[in-house]
Computed example of a mutant assay.
Amino acid sequence: MPELPEVEVSRMGISPHLVGEKVVKVTVRTPKLRWDIPTELKEMQGQVIQSISRRAKYLLIQTKVGTAIVHLGMSGSLRVLDAELAPQKHDHVDVKLANGKVLRYNDPRRFGAWLWSEDGCHTVLKTMGPEPLTDDFDADYISAKAVSKRVTVKQFIMDNKIVVGVGNIYANESLFTAGILPTRGAGTLSLNEWQKLVKEIKKVLSTAIAQGGTTLKDFAQADGKPGYFAQELQVYGKGGQACPCCAHPVKEQKIGQRNTFFCEYCQR
């Protein structure tokens, strides 16, 4: 499932081809993905794309009359292609541009979404916490949120109401490099530990973006290339293998229905 780094990589990949270009046609081949695709999406036709931004794992394609809000779901991808190229199976949405290119959305599992908002402030965005790579996300903020919380620290940092975009892969990796057990209660961490964890979350996410994201099964960049952060993973997906720091076996267990990987010797 594309996480924040993969969505940011997609944004960076498509933006140079779309921003400043005029939309000539919007084609919807599948009327329902995760939710019904609103008919208002076609209001983009005749409009110039002003910007493409990201909020959590949503991409916001802004025009003068409104904003298309795109979520890649479990297996969605965006490609910029020649408009003459025939659509393939699972190509559900096309945004054709005046420059002869098309932004094409492919999603085999159909868990993604295309939404529309006149002001860019859709209900799916209203309850989200701060972006993890901004100054709004720091140890003082999250330690205050964690007071008396019994939920595990891993589940806590993956809660989009607390901070957006720290998905399962990056939560595992950040907790490992910060030396914090994912099973600990969020309320038990000291301010110093939160400082370490916030620093590692920012570092891991930034490195993943620089590496083009993480390709495990479905994700590819907008140009079709895989993300290379998978080569940097230290514990995620490595249950039973040697810890890269102490050589003891990496443990694996379910936390909140998600596979969790950690070293009981290096993490406390």
Rank of each mutant, 00 (worst) to 15 (best):
A242W: 09
M1H: 10
Y236T: 03
F111L: 14
F229S: 09
R54G: 04
Y228R: 11
K89C: 01
E232S: 15
T183N: 01
K217D: 09
E232W: 03
T123A: 15
Q88T: 10
Q241R: 15
H248F: 14
H90G: 02
C246F: 14
G185N: 06
R29E: 01
D94Q: 13
K64D: 15
R54L: 03
S10I: 15
T134K: 09
P5A: 10
L233H: 08
G73Y: 03
R104E: 00
S143L: 03
C245M: 08
I209T: 12
A86N: 04
V9I: 07
E6F: 07
V147H: 11
P182K: 11
G13H: 13
T134M: 01
C121H: 10
G185Y: 00
E84N: 02
L216F: 08
F156D: 08
Q234R: 15
P226L: 11
Q155F: 00
V9L: 10
V24D: 12
Y58Q: 12
G239M: 02
V70P: 02
A146C: 07
S77G: 13
A68C: 05
E40K: 05
V9Q: 13
E21M: 13
V166P: 11
L181A: 12
L72I: 14
H122L: 09
R54K: 06
S174N: 13
E252D: 09
Q221A: 06
V124E: 10
R184P: 00
R258F: 04
W116A: 01
A186W: 02
L191K: 07
V153P: 06
